[in-house]
């Protein structure tokens, strides 16, 4: 398989007034060229930290990030600059992610000014209206300001802003969760169309499992800074192997109904398997030994000592 982005053992801790917060713990992930990888998990699971590390808003404490065959985590800010245009991001809230004081045309043109030095003014105008057209807005929107746009239109603008410089990878951080349900489907279909047209790769972060199952080719499930299950969407939906994944999908809308207890504090993560405090199948081994992400079946990974089989608990899965 041809991987576009590879995270290898990436860790990140934040220092807060109350102590250290472990956001990512030795997480590894590969995103293949042209795929949509869905990243799901509760809030506080480290999804956003991972997104921020990929677009280099924050730098990891440990681990390597390889993009398109080049290790980008060790590059200086200056050397990274040419990779800026390859990795773009769309934020969750289109109301806060677009500068309210600038016209849409100004912002789009600015992307070109930064990355396409020496482009003529007419060429830029043409590209701006082309990119607005691509996201389903006509060129008159270039003169408008964010305040006169609806949430869906703003998110279209945000997508145009990410797309105008033709990146290879777009990190979509909950791109539809701030939108009305009626607009949600339009934006998802727009994203699918654009991927086909430009051969894009998406990392699609969401807590909405319906949305992720609809759009993603593969799904990665995160819990407390680690990836606990990873596989093709149909494999995961067909045979969830991690108890957490199962609980998460069982309770699409209300996780606390099927999971007992709160998500543990990332300041004081549990020993052993991070999920053992809430897992109904937890055994002594889970309390002391941390499972690693291991291959279950072709392309399906899980980090659990006693993975579920066919939706049922298999007592013998570990040969005990």
């Amino acid at each position: 398989m041809d991987s576009l982005l590879k995270l290898d053992g990436v860790s990140k801790e934040y220092k807060s007034a109350y102590g250290r917060v472990r956001a990512l713990c030795e997480s590894s992930l590969e995103i293949e060229r042209g795929e949509i990888l869905g990243l799901v998990g509760e809030s506080g699971s480290g999804k956003s930290s991972m997104a921020n590390i990929i677009v280099r808003l924050i730098s990891p404490d440990k681990g390597k990030i390889v993009f398109n065959g080049v290790e980008i985590s060790s590059l200086s800010a200056r050397a990274f600059r040419k990779f800026r245009r390859e990795i773009q991001m769309v934020f969750q809230d289109p109301y806060s992610s677009i500068n309210p004081k600038k016209s849409i045309g100004y912002l789009l043109k600015e992307c070109l000014k930064i990355h396409e030095k020496g482009m003529s003014d007419e060429e830029m105008e043409r590209k701006v209206s082309e990119s607005l057209d691509e996201v389903g807005l006509d060129s008159s929107y270039a003169k408008r300001y964010p305040a006169s746009l609806s949430g869906g239109q703003r998110q279209r603008v945000a997508i145009a802003l990410a797309l105008i410089i033709r990146p290879k990878l777009i990190v979509l951080d909950e791109p539809v969760s701030a939108l009305d349900v009626s607009v949600e489907a339009q934006i998802l279909n727009l994203l699918l169309d654009l991927r086909k047209k430009h051969g894009l790769t998406y990392l699609f972060i969401s807590h909405d499992l319906n949305v992720v199952s609809y759009i993603a080719d593969r799904i990665a499930v995160m819990y407390l800074g680690s990836i606990v299950e990873l596989g093709k969407t149909e494999d995961i939906l067909g045979a969830m192997a991690h108890p957490y994944t199962k609980a998460l999908f069982a309770a699409s809308s209300d996780i606390s109904a099927t999971l007992s207890g709160e998500i543990p504090s990332p300041m004081n993560p549990p020993s052993g398997c991070p999920f053992h405090t809430r897992c109904i199948y937890a055994k002594d081994r889970c309390r002391v030994e941390k499972p690693s992400l291991s291959l279950l079946s072709s392309g399906h990974f899980v980090s659990c000592h006693y993975p579920l089989r066919g939706g049922e608990k298999n007592e013998n899965s570990c040969g005990i």
Binding site: V55, S96, C111, L161
Partner: peptide
């Protein structure tokens, strides 16, 4: 640290 400033950084500004 607002979103639109982060977005600008990602855009390479």
């Amino acid at each position: 640290d607002s979103d639109f400033v982060k977005a600008e950084r990602i855009r390479g500004a």
